[in-house]
Design a protein around this nucleic acid. Structure first.
Length: 1124
RNA sequence: AGGUAAGUAGCACAGCUUGGUUAGCGCAUCGCUCUGAUACAGCGAAGGUCAUUGGUUCGAGUCCAAUCUUACCUACCA
């Protein structure tokens, strides 16, 4: 692709092909170990610690991974340029359910088959393969996208060393009493005898519509001080009851509490029980009264009731809130057994209580509902588990002992009588049932047995995170979250409501829980290292519980530790240890949550504390981590929790939580919808650089990004294309002029104004970009860089300075132009290199090859530019902005349909009204630039006294509004009616007294904004507080000059068409034409200079001539190369 | 259901912290122009009830409240 001529110092490339360039740069990086060098050269410097959140590589990488990794990469590269040493250790997450599921899918088996049709060993082997299935593909995308991370020495979560660190941490927790065995309420299938995962519940068909008997039970309020108010409203014979509704009456014997909504309004209603006809008084949510009572019956007097009548009168006698009911006691509904693990039979407040259905009072059975359990923990409520694992009532429930709570005995549907019905009948008889009816609802079923599941308390191991909750909240406040809202809100709020971390997972492929127990649970041991385990096994061998120790082997007659053991199941389950009493201890069969694996990576990646103690200490805590916002409660939490509990400190100081990548319509990408984007294709098409730049510049990392490949193309065309053109322009002329930056630096104050301006802009840019990267605000940084490159550098500086480069004589002005442009290019490349690392390195290397200004062979080995404040001149930047505005306006005026004079035609004059002397001085400094850009001969500044300017006055709302308040409107109207005289008056006197409805109000000059909107008889334009008028009269002189310029333009085009070299001298011969005479006479020198002609001849008649059209006239012309 | 964020032109975004009267930029569309830097640029046109409703205020895209929609996380319902 490269077309390099022998003489050229700067490499020139005809067309921009980013993917090609990236391949070349990748090869260069690999051959020269640039990544390694970028770390080596910072040796001994302050480290910048980065943790790589391990991706699971059992799936193919997607385009969103490119997004996440670009964010990680760019800050690491930035800090590396800033002189820090930035190690980046890759890691792979290799445990967990997704891997097990894909193995099951590949082998066509289910969890049930493990250990039956397939040995656990085979299964284990399969998982090990599956876990790293796409590792190579991940390596490839990492490489191609330019993500620098050390993949030669990654941490892998299934390795023994990694697991050993996890065990060490668990043991620390165990010793601190942070690990305990409890239970959680989980979906459980009594028919299959197993717990189900959420994933299994989400299987299609799991939820089925079934008809169950629902009951609204009466819970009798205990009469005491708190409830006295309720009892005052009823007759002595009646009792007060809470009404609670349930679709699972079988849980009623296990009831231990009732929950109300704090802000829900409840009514007390006197009425009669429809089954026993006894007078009762019930409590129910106001919004639900209509569900239970017919409004008409509320009109009836209570004493009109006849026992057995369908018409039950009622009367509302009181109103209260849930908050007031909290703490009320009630009598146990079905007193078979009393709980012994806490308080019971009282009213508590639950946030989940609504008035959508039921009674607004929820029956709580902690053993059979997750919400119930949480509430029980919160209030220290006792619990009752009166159903066994077969789904049958225990013997203590005398009436129903042994009866299954659902149809687990395979009774034909028609004959099946649910125990719920019997419970309802019993309640009816005891005046404890208010209402019962059949209820259709969606209920989860076991996908294997098709039987209803129940929620049931199952053994689990927990980490007592709640004990360190306050500290976690506190430490979290020291972490810099991007965006802040995620840290304070999403994460912070969640920490506030933290519950203990359920570590247990009943699966096969994961880190085994290193706890062994005797059968009766009287003794248990937590193992913290492989050494410890091996030693314990020796004891077990001695005790005769194990035949040999699998962690040792005999080598050359010596007993040595084996290297090839595996800490996973099933091998670990074969280890039996011995208790102090000589009893066998079996391992608790659970695995631990995979999030514990990744949350422990700061320690486990170094096999701490068994190895690398120093390395760990140098690399802890992290300065920076980044992952998707969906990891907030995943990795971000586990890192934080483990660090707080282990070392009482944070494990990361800055965290960027990035948003998701959606397709261009804002829909989440999924294989099912077929709207995924293949990252390899995207990179192949437009390059990693364009993709990376697009992702970072298009939206803030934490906002969701709608990925649109057309947007990538736009970035490539607009930003990279412009930068490429700028470089091409520079290299083209620098090669011609042999500019290699070998001359002495021209002092800034000796360079032209425009050079000083662009350098000032450059240093302002460096300052801002540096700050933004440091604050983890990459999007704003990239937008600034892009604006600088396209608007300021290319479309202003280079465009205005073109002639300085291509004029033939060499002088300090030309040199200044080269040096200035070179500095801009070089600096901008450095600024953008963290985000898009390839193309800047390519250009940097091309530039540096010619100038050898830097020793660094890659831009990634250079130091980040430092902003030189002394070169920043805000006044200069401002006046250049004014110049740009004026040019814009004049170009628009030239375009005016009444005039339509193109820029090549010179015009005589522009008029700029300026009221302040200061502004005039500013404008005068950029006058030449303006005039040459818009091709106008002179500028005249007019002050207010000229009398040709029409002025406009407007209040400065910010100032006057504060001062006047309500009178603002009237003053505004008055100002609108100001005459030119009034405006002149306020301008000369500095103030004006208004008369608003008889009130005198003084207005100062600085409280109004006066603008010049019109100039009589001129073409006028206004923008940004500037006004410009254009004189469009074309004199003969102007016409001639315009003609000359048109002529030059046509001849230049001709040169190009004839493929002349830039430096070729030519001879031009015209055929005689009346319009040529005066032009050639007057502008001979000018034309010759412009087109590098040694001679302009006129001949009577030309053959082989080319016809060109200039200002509507056809001229015959011939160009020949002048070979001297 | 709860938590968190977002909603501004056909599309993608800025402006909101600190309220100020003509709401910007880019792309796309249409018209014109320039170019010895031909994957570039310039000028113009068209395109907006700033999600909706209400409030505070002399003045609201910006502050407050409610509602609707979207996304993520958590939970799963008597």
């Amino acid at each position: 692709m490269a077309t390099t001529t022998d003489k050229a110092k700067y490499r020139q490339v005809k067309r921009l092909n980013l993917p090609e360039i990236e391949k070349e740069i990748l090869a260069f990086w690999t051959e020269n170990n640039i990544f390694d060098k970028s770390i080596e050269i910072r040796k001994g410097n302050e480290p910048f610690v980065f943790y790589e959140g391990p991706p699971s590589v059992n799936g193919k990488p997607g385009i969103h991974h490119v997004m996440g990794r670009t964010i990680k990469d760019l800050f690491c590269r930035y800090h590396s340029l800033k002189g820090k040493q930035v190690h980046r250790k890759a890691g792979w997450d290799t445990h967990g359910l997704p891997i097990e599921l894909s193995v099951e899918k590949t082998l066509g088996i289910t969890k049930e088959d493990i250990g039956k049709t397939l040995t656990v060993e085979e299964y284990n082997t399969k998982c090990r393969e599956e876990a790293l299935k796409y590792q190579a593909l991940w390596g490839k995308i990492t490489h191609q996208m330019g993500y620098w991370v050390d993949m030669d020495n990654p941490y892998v979560t299934f390795e023994n060393e990694y697991i050993e660190t996890l065990w060490w941490i668990l043991k620390q927790f165990y010793d601190k009493g942070l690990l305990y065995k409890g239970y959680t309420i989980q979906p459980f299938s009594p028919a299959a005898g197993t717990g189900l995962s959420t994933h299994e519940l989400n299987q299609p068909g799991a939820y089925q519509d079934v008809k169950d008997v629902s009951a609204t039970a009466q819970f009798k309020v205990v009469r005491n001080e708190q409830s006295e108010l309720l009892y005052e409203k009823v007759e002595s014979s009646a009792n007060v009851y809470f009404l609670a509704w349930t679709t699972t009456p079988w849980t009623l014997p296990s009831n231990t509490a009732l929950a109300v909504g704090k802000n829900i309004t409840y009514l007390q209603i006197n009425t009669f029980n429809a089954y026993t006809f006894e007078p009762i008084s019930v409590i129910i949510a106001k919004d639900l009264v209509g569900q239970y009572f017919n409004a008409e019956n509320g009109e009836l007097p209570l004493d009109s009731y006849e026992a057995g009548s369908k018409t039950v009168p009622y009367a509302i006698v009181g109103e209260t809130t849930g908050a007031a009911l909290e703490g009320c006691r009630y009598e146990q509904l079905l007193p078979y057994v009393q709980p012994d693990d806490g308080d019971a039979f009282k009213v508590v407040v639950g946030d989940f209580v609504t008035t959508e259905s039921g009674t607004g009072i929820v029956h709580i059975a902690p053993s059979f509902g997750a919400d119930d359990m949480m509430l029980a923990k919160k209030y220290g409520l006792g619990s009752l588990t009166l159903v066994d694992k077969q789904g049958r009532f225990v013997d203590a429930v005398t009436d129903f002992a042994g009866v299954p709570v659902k149809n687990y005995d395979n009774v034909p549907d028609k004959e099946y009588r649910a125990v719920d019905i019997d419970i309802v009948v019993k309640l009816k008889g005891e005046n404890k049932l208010f209402k019962s009816e059949k209820y259709m609802h969606s209920y989860p079923h076991c996908w294997r047995t098709d039987k209803p599941i129940i929620y049931y308390p199952l053994d689990s191991w927990f980490v007592r995170t709640t004990e360190h909750k306050e500290r976690m909240v506190e430490l979290n406040k020291t972490i810099n979250w991007k965006p802040a809202a995620t840290g304070e809100g999403r994460f912070g709020n969640w920490l506030e409501n933290l519950v203990d971390w359920n570590l247990s997972r009943s699966r096969f492929w994961g880190t085994p829980l290193p706890i062994w127990r005797t059968e009766d649970g009287s003794e248990e041991i937590c193992i913290g290292s492989i050494d410890e385990l091996a030693a314990k096994v020796d004891e077990a061998v001695v005790a005769g519980l194990m035949t040999d120790n699998p962690y040792y082997e005999l080598k050359d007659g010596k007993r040595v530790r084996r290297a090839d053991f595996d800490l996973h199941r099933p091998y670990i389950d074969r280890i039996v240890l011995v208790s102090s009493k000589g009893e066998p201890m079996q391992r608790e069969s659970d695995l631990i949550d995979v999030w514990f694996d990744s949350g422990a990576m700061p320690y486990a990646q170094w096999h701490y504390p068994f190895e690398n103690k120093e390395k760990f200490e140098e690399n802890y805590p992290a300065d920076f981590i980044a992952e998707g916002v969906d990891q907030t409660r995943g990795w971000f939490f586990t890192l934080h929790a483990i660090a707080t509990m282990l070392f009482d400190q944070v494990s990361y100081k800055n965290v960027v939580s990035n948003g998701l990548l959606l397709d261009k319509n804002g829909v989440k990408m999924s294989k099912r919808l077929g709207n995924t984007v293949d990252p390899f294709e995207a990179i192949e098409k437009y390059g990693a650089d364009a993709n990376r730049w697009y992702m970072i510049s298009n939206s803030q990392p934490w906002d969701n990004l709608r990925y649109d490949i057309d947007g990538v193309q736009e970035v490539q065309r607009k930003f990279f294309g412009t930068l490429f053109n700028t470089y091409s322009f520079f290299s083209l002329y620098a090669n011609v002029d042999n500019f290699t930056y070998s001359e002495a630096e021209i002092p800034m104050n000796e360079r032209p104004e425009i050079d000083q301006w662009v350098i000032s802009m450059l240093h302002s840019l460096v300052k801002e970009v540096d700050g933004l990267y440091a604050e983890y605000e990459p999007t704003r940084a990239t937008r600034l860089i892009q604006d600088f490159v396209t608007d300021h550098l290319s479309n202003w500086y280079v465009r205005l300075c073109r002639r300085r480069f291509w004029k033939s004589e060499s002088n300090s002005d030309k040199l200044a132009a080269y040096q200035t442009l070179y500095q801009c290019l070089e600096t901008v490349l450095q600024l953008m290199s963290p985000v898009s690392p390839f193309f800047p390195d390519f250009l940097y290397r091309n530039l540096n090859a010619a100038t050898q200004r830097h020793e660094a062979e890659s831009i990634h080995l250079t130091d980040f530019p430092i902003a030189d404040e002394s070169l920043i001149d805000k006044a200069l930047e401002e006046r250049m902005e004014m110049a740009q505005t004026i040019c814009s306006m004049v170009l628009a005026l030239r375009k005016n349909k009444d005039v339509n004079v193109n820029v090549r035609k010179p015009l005589q004059k522009i008029l700029i009204p300026v009221l302040e002397e200061d502004k005039k001085l500013q404008l005068q400094k950029v006058e030449d630039l303006i005039l040459s850009e818009i091709n106008v001969k002179e500028v005249e500044y007019v002050s207010d006294t000229s009398g040709i300017v029409t002025k406009n006055i407007k209040p400065d709302f910010k100032k006057l509004g504060r001062k006047l308040g309500k009178k603002m409107k009237a003053v505004n109207i008055a100002l609108q009616q100001f005459t030119q005289d009034d405006i002149n008056q306020i301008e000369t006197k500095g103030e004006y007294i208004l008369d608003i409805e008889g009130e005198k109000i003084g207005i100062n000059l600085d409280e109004v904004v006066i603008s010049s909107d019109d100039i009589e008889g001129w073409l006028v334009n206004s923008m940004n507080g500037l006004t410009v008028a254009l004189d469009v009269t074309i004199t003969e002189d102007l016409r001639l000059e315009g003609f000359a310029r048109e002529l030059v333009s046509r001849l230049q085009r001709l040169r190009k068409e004839m493929d002349f070299e830039l430096t070729d001298r030519i001879i031009v011969t015209f055929e005689e034409h009346p319009s040529l005479e005066s032009v050639l006479e007057k502008f001979n020198q000018y034309i010759s200079n412009e087109i590098l002609a040694d001679e302009l001849q006129v001949a009577e008649k030309l053959t082989d001539a080319t016809a060109i059209e200039v200002d509507g006239k056809t001229l015959e012309v011939k160009i020949t190369r002048n070979i001297l």
